[in-house]
Design a protein around this nucleic acid. Structure first.
Lengths: 241, 241
DNA sequence: GTCTATAGCTGGATAGAC
DNA sequence: GTCTATCCAGCTATAGAC
């Protein structure tokens, strides 16, 4: 025990097959992800999390410093991977046949890494949706740190693919895209209730197959030649159609 | 003071100009709405709410029974009014020139009552967005009780206006519409950050002026003749364009 | 109807054994 | 690295004076 290289100790323990031998740290992260996504960051106690992980609050504080630290750790575990895969897929779009890339490809590159299985799977998706909805200073900060660069690149790519669409329109369409993504991830179940379960946004495959073409089409629609300037407050749609 | 009709006492007090004379009940509801929408239902204590209202937790429990009761009261205060105004506007669409009604009118009838000033204003909007995102059993139940009927009518009206659109497509488009609405109400500020504030979903007029035509257009798009059945998992867009 | 005071818990975080 | 035990702050809800 004395000669063990210190920086390897944790890894070694993780490799030992026994479930109990699996690093406590990982089990806490998993439990936290599950419970945070279900009840929100203020809806669960550290005690509940560590109990589910078969540990106790002292262990959590040892590994993550505080409850806030744990939340950030859960986020950080997969967030960077998603941003990276998004960028990789976006780069792949650019280098393919059919340049300029299809809008469908860009949209899919944005949505898929966060919705499919690779980076924490469905569990992390729900967690992410929940956090976005929570909208505290901490979560805004986390999103900014991990996703601003990547998301900015997508806005740019979309603007390039749609040179005739005014930036203001593009931004609002992208806002709708984000809303659709977050709402799908958070999944309040409204559409299931309203349609008797026919529609299931909790299934990532069904969600992507439906969202990608729908949102690409939304982006592709001609600019709404609104009769009003972006800021003029009142309506009266002089719509001749 | 002795001869005051009991059932009028609260109202009288509300009319007396002094801010302290305004019914405590109302001040607690206002404070709760503001703080719940900012920090979530688990992120604020009853003490914080009543302190902001210039009262104390005992008063809140007297009026609402419990913290949960207070949350429901805040929701109930304006929710029914929104559902009613939605239905009124929908009926007005049907009886107007240009029947079948324009999609824009239907979409506006759905969005405007909840986003404009009438029913609790912007404060209640944020509260509602926040609650939807919280997605607990209580909030799901509240939404179902107050909005299922009305929202079902809108789905029906949209299906009538779009007889050629398969129900499955309609449901997913409506899901996106709900997502855009909720995301706008909850307002995590992502699009402001990403566009340097050029786009402001917190302004109800700007939001409606942009969302209504965009979402109407989304609904109006031709059905995506997906080469895959709704459930087939894998991609390969045989898109010849 | 509104207050003060407090009962009764539960929470996050830490000390210190192993 | 993980545990038990514990401190103490903060919470909801209630009792009882006014």
């Amino acid at each position: 025990m004395t000669a063990l290289p210190l920086e390897k100790a944790g890894e070694e323990a993780a490799i030992a097959g026994d479930a109990r031998g699996e690093a406590t740290r990982q089990r806490i992260l998993d439990a936290a992800q599950r419970l945070f996504s279900e009840h929100g960051s203020n809806g669960v106690s550290l005690r509940a999390i560590t109990a589910e992980a078969g540990a106790n609050s002292a262990a959590a504080n040892y590994h993550f410093g505080s409850k806030t630290g744990l939340l950030e750790a859960v986020f950080a575990r997969h967030a960077a991977g998603i941003a990276e895969e998004r960028d990789t897929m976006l780069r792949a779009c650019r280098e393919e046949i059919g340049r300029p890339p299809l809008l469908e490809q860009i949209v899919r590159a944005f949505l898929e890494p966060g919705m499919r299985g690779q980076h924490g799977g469905h569990g992390f998706s729900r967690f992410r949706g929940r956090l976005l909805a929570e909208n505290t200073e901490q979560t805004r900060d986390l999103y900014a740190r991990y996703f601003n660069d990547s998301t900015g690149q997508f806005l740019e790519a979309l603007q390039n693919a749609l040179p005739d669409l005014p930036a203001h329109d593009l931004h609002w369409r992208f806002h709708v895209l984000l809303g659709a993504m977050v709402y799908t991830l958070a999944n309040p179940g409204r559409i299931q209730v309203l349609t008797g379960g026919e529609c299931d946004p909790a299934d990532p495959d069904q969600a992507l197959d439906n969202l990608v073409p729908m949102l690409a089409q939304l982006l592709r629609n001609p600019a709404m030649t609104n009769t009003k300037s972006p800021n003029s407050p009142h309506e009266l749609n002089t719509n001749q159609a």
